[in-house]
Design a protein around this nucleic acid. Structure first.
Lengths: 147, 147
DNA sequence: GTCGCACCTGCGAAGATTCGCAACAGCACT
DNA sequence: AGTGCTGTTGCGAATCTTCGCAGGTGCGAC
């Protein structure tokens, strides 16, 4: 399938080595329908081919690398477990997470581009606001829970 | 000293119980000159009065509670260790963290208020963007490291 | 001042993530 | 195809954070 060669391409283009582990891990992430924890990804990878084992450390390291390369994004919610999702290069979206029920939702936020400009101007930082996790209260919990 | 009674006040006003541990932990956080990890706070608390011991769990739980109450803010950077800082109720500022050198800096960002409005409009979430950790590259690393 | 109910704390264990190190394996160059 | 340098991997250990439970304690009601 071509997605794997695309992944291979993307990894190599960014000056990283292409390894079987990376392809399998990123491929699993890409085909997942929702956010995956490191453990879940490991399960998927093992399911595909139980022979060649991949260590959990490698999953974490690959996800870290992929995040740095812009191929994945990491979300550390209040759950104590980080989850990851495939991130089509160049795309942007953000996540709001309900502090009451834990539900998360994706939103496209144009105004954050302004924040990047504001940051550059004030601190000289080149901010990378492509996949932010924003805490809040969802409409349901707000209506129900009060406050 | 009055800061402790202010802390007491703040905790009680929010419907939480006032305990010796909370006062000591929050007081230590408040008087710290910079971000503190849970372990550092524990050290400070123990330094003050080695007799009454406080457990690390309690430090974590108190910081979590205080964050929920808006008295503290939590920053989980790339370092693998969460740090906390006292947060004067009602105030807002954000942190940019350099992905290359790890340095963090505070910035006030007006544009994030717009993002809150945008989120409410698009998803019904009531976002709470008061202390966000924003990844990026600082001016130095950008100049030096290239790109 | 006493009583009782939750909320809190301590402790130990479990879970999640990072680190250090030696062995392995891409990839550029011959 | 062979070689070497260096980025990667696996493994186990260390570290950080969360959890569950039994006992303690703040605080409102008497």
């Amino acid at each position: 399938m071509s997605c794997e060669s695309e992944i291979a391409q993307a990894v190599r283009d960014r000056g990283r080595r292409l390894t079987m582990q990376r392809v399998r891990i990123l491929s699993a992430l890409r085909h997942a329908s929702e956010h995956q924890s490191a453990e879940q990804i490991l399960d998927r990878v093992r399911g595909g081919d139980p022979l060649a084992d991949i260590s959990l450390s490698t999953v974490y390291r690959t996800l870290e690398t992929a995040t740095a390369l812009g191929l994945a994004s990491e979300l550390r919610g209040a759950t104590g477990t980080a989850v990851y999702e495939w991130s089509e290069p160049g795309t942007t979206h953000h996540h709001v997470e309900c502090l009451a029920c834990g539900r998360t939702e994706s939103v496209a936020l144009a105004s954050l581009a302004l924040a990047e400009a504001e940051i550059r101007e004030r601190s000289g930082f080149e901010a990378d606001i492509r996949h932010l996790a924003i805490p809040g209260l969802c409409a349901d919990c707000r209506a129900r829970g009060g406050r």
